[in-house]
Design a binder for these strands. Structure first.
Lengths: 371, 371
DNA sequence: GCTGCGCAGGAAAGCGCTTACCTGGCCTCG
DNA sequence: CGAGGCCAGGTAAGCGCTTTCCTGCGCAGC
């Protein structure tokens, strides 16, 4: 990819795109100038127009002889067209931008796989940007992608409880849409356009029901970051289900962590220290559940005999840990694919919202509480 | 990112870059034309030159009043510079291209993390391309990155036992280097330039020694794809160590798989079927080792009491599986960082090769054989 | 034999930006 | 009071490509 917008610092990192702001050591190094279209044309003894036509397989006919000469020149010069010049010349808008929290997080890798599949089918280039859950970086990436002239921008991952940010973001997206850009979001309600929504709340309700069905009463929750809407959605669903069964979820039994393994382990430790009698731990994503598993193992707590552990998302690793994780499955790949389809199909006036159901997957990390 | 080279099909996928060859539905959609620099200039009542200067924070002084007017116009128009036009105008060469087998494979995620770190420090944009172990796609990506005018290309991941391909690739890289491009490779010996080499052979030797030390005699190997040099390097190291201890590694006890979990499980099954008396299984990467663990569990074979399992790479997940995986640690992040440093520091005449040592990590999946 | 048409190929106008170079106003100095 | 400098700002020449439009050729038709 590519990058650069603001003159000064503010260099976001990017899964794939990272931002090139500096003018570090790249003095015109020794070596020949890179071959250009007119070099090819000159060498083939034709005009640049003709060279361009044969290179791009234009519909305009060119005699075999000239074509041959051009191709030969291309080969000899190892000519590769300058993609930026091409994009400038035909204002093409072929690429699609994606902003995720972190592609190396399996949740997003799976979504990305879906996005990728559809994009590739349509011959689109994908530019993936990692916001690392930094709202500012997210805003910068929107600008960056605009600057790249992408045909669509897809925002994947939870929104933030932050009205100012949301307003700002929506403003930028609106400006982008006003000039013909397409926007689709995955799992955030604050945007008014096309969206794919996993049913977090309902999934969490399923989870709560299962926990109650098994008979647990002392339940700890390892939640995600407070500011994320995904966290609150899941928490809400969970609370609803527990309430239906007459159970409470006191605040001190909800610990907020960062949706990653290590903070999940930490939160579990805190939970256990505060309330040694817990029989169930519900982590609001699988990474944290795996952290919980690891902590419990280190404390020699048997899972599920003494404590049951529940995850959320059903990422691939969930079946490989021991005991295999009981979790809520979200159709991640599907979500990505749908979002890309929405973004690319261009049609339809009103915003379209597709909701995808969650599903309980029982594995070995859950069971009834000990007596 | 961006993309497009050959006129016709041949659309490779790309972790981050994916190729935009089509001219699918993106007719000039309704909506205002996207604001351009001269729009800003006009609205601010200044020349494009001045507008450009304030927007890029040029060193050339501009009075506060004009500056103010320009910034206001930028805000009102939500102007974002066209990155392609900028790149064309200043021939900057800021981005760096990376070709890996598959970023969603933890081996490459880790390497990429290292690459990213250094690139970001230097304010570089990273373009990541996934070859999915397809040599042709690798060649295409070299062209693509050349077309993107990247300052450097980094190839990560094993080379192929394929002389024709290697020649072709080296030719393309040479052409790129001739025009001032920088190239660095990670873990492939066939390239003549700067390289970072994990010591696969020595790591495998460590592994073999450990296996022998524990007293195993009936050893099965789950190898990677035959065509990869990494596979053969590791196999060679392993064989050497076994030979030093007077052990053999008959061909039927080496199964070739695809470096992923499922094929690892399959290969393990085949191994066990062919030779039920195995007491140790050495997988040549961790993903396959995890597949092996999973298969053994499904067959109710106790690890490490009945069979020991060994991995390679020490990717993060290795400590989370049960039993935690004994493996050979490669400094993946470090490898990425070094490679990027080599590629960017530009200096030095002769090719520099940095070799990084592997290290044995003992965990719970290994032990002495049963009697 | 002359006009008209079809067609391969070329000339040139941008795409949106940067930047070297030029201009005109003001201040300073002799 | 006039010449020389300095400086903010503008003019215009590209960057490397695509594409419209035009040219000049060879042919058929009257």
């Amino acid at each position: 990819m590519t990058c650069t917008n603001h003159a000064a610092a503010k260099v976001p990192h990017c899964g794939t795109v990272a931002l090139a702001v500096n003018d570090a050591a790249d003095a015109t190094r020794e070596g020949t100038r890179v071959a250009t279209l007119s070099d090819v044309a000159r060498r083939a003894g034709v005009s640049p127009a003709t060279a361009s036509r044969v290179i791009n397989g234009s519909s305009k006919p060119v005699t075999d002889e000239l074509r041959e000469r051009v191709l030969q020149a291309v080969a000899e010069l190892q000519y590769v067209p300058n993609a930026h010049a091409q994009l400038l010349a035909r204002s093409h808008r072929g690429a699609v931008g994606v902003i995720v929290h972190d592609v190396s997080d399996p949740y997003f890798s799976e979504i990305t796989r879906g996005l990728q599949r559809v994009a590739t089918d349509q011959g689109r280039l994908l530019m993936i940007c990692n916001s690392y859950r930094d709202p500012d970086r997210e805003l910068e990436y929107v600008e960056l992608l605009r600057g790249q002239q992408v045909a669509a921008i897809i925002l994947a991952g939870s929104g933030y409880h932050d009205a100012d940010f949301t307003t700002l973001l929506n403003g930028k997206l609106a400006a982008y849409e006003a000039t013909g850009g397409r926007v689709a979001v995955i799992g955030r309600h604050e945007h008014s356009g096309d969206a794919v929504m996993p049913d977090n709340r309902d999934g969490a309700r399923l989870l709560g029901q299962e926990i109650c069905r098994l008979g647990h009463r002392r339940i700890g929750v390892v939640a995600g970051p407070r500011v994320l809407t995904t966290t609150t959605d899941r928490l809400t669903g969970l609370r609803e289900a527990l309430a239906e069964h007459g159970r409470q979820l006191p605040d001190q039994l909800v610990r907020y962590a960062d949706f990653d393994r290590d903070s999940g382990a930490e939160a579990t430790a805190a939970l256990l220290d505060a309330e040694p009698g817990l029989t169930a731990i519900a982590a609001l994503n699988d990474s944290m559940a795996i952290g919980a598993l690891s902590l419990l193992r280190s404390r020699a707590v048997a899972v599920p005999d003494q404590v049951s552990v529940f995850g959320f998302d059903d990422m691939p690793m969930a079946r490989d840990v021991t005991p295999a994780l009981t979790t809520i499955r979200l159709p991640l790949v599907e979500m990505g694919a749908r979002a890309m389809a929405l973004a690319l199909d261009g049609g339809s006036a009103g915003p379209r919202v597709e909701s995808l159901a969650a599903e309980l997957v029982r594995r070995d990390s859950s069971g009834p509480p000990p007596h």
